[in-house]
C-alpha cells in the first residue's frame, strides 16, 4: 500500500473526496440508508446468485 505522504496532491484530493463521501453517507437517516442497502442488494444479487449463493432482495413497501 502506498503511504499517504508519498502521494501526489491530486491523488490525495481524490482519497479525501472518497472519505468525505463516506462520511456524508454515514450521516444519512436510517431509512435512507436502508433504501441504499436495498439498491446494493439489487446490484449484488445477480453476481452472488451466479456464484451459487442463495440471496433474497428485500421487498419493502413504498
Amino acid at each position: 500500500m502506498e503511504r499517504m505522504d508519498s502521494l501526489t496532491p491530486d491523488i490525495k484530493r481524490l482519497f479525501q473526496a472518497k472519505e468525505d463521501r463516506r462520511r456524508k453517507l454515514a450521516a444519512l437517516s436510517f431509512p435512507e440508508k436502508v433504501q441504499i442497502i436495498v439498491q446494493l442488494q439489487h446490484m449484488a444479487a445477480p453476481i452472488l446468485r451466479a456464484r451459487g449463493e442463495n440471496v433474497d432482495v428485500w421487498t419493502l413497501r413504498p
Binding site: 463516506r22 453517507l25 436510517f30 440508508k33 442497502i37 446494493l40 433474497d56 428485500w58
Partner: peptide, 14 residues
C-alpha cells in the same frame, strides 16, 4: 450489519 449501518455508511447485507 444493519445496526452498524445505523452509525456508518450503508453496508451490503441480506
Amino acid at each position: 450489519a444493519m445496526a452498524a449501518t445505523f452509525y456508518t455508511e450503508p453496508v451490503l447485507t441480506f
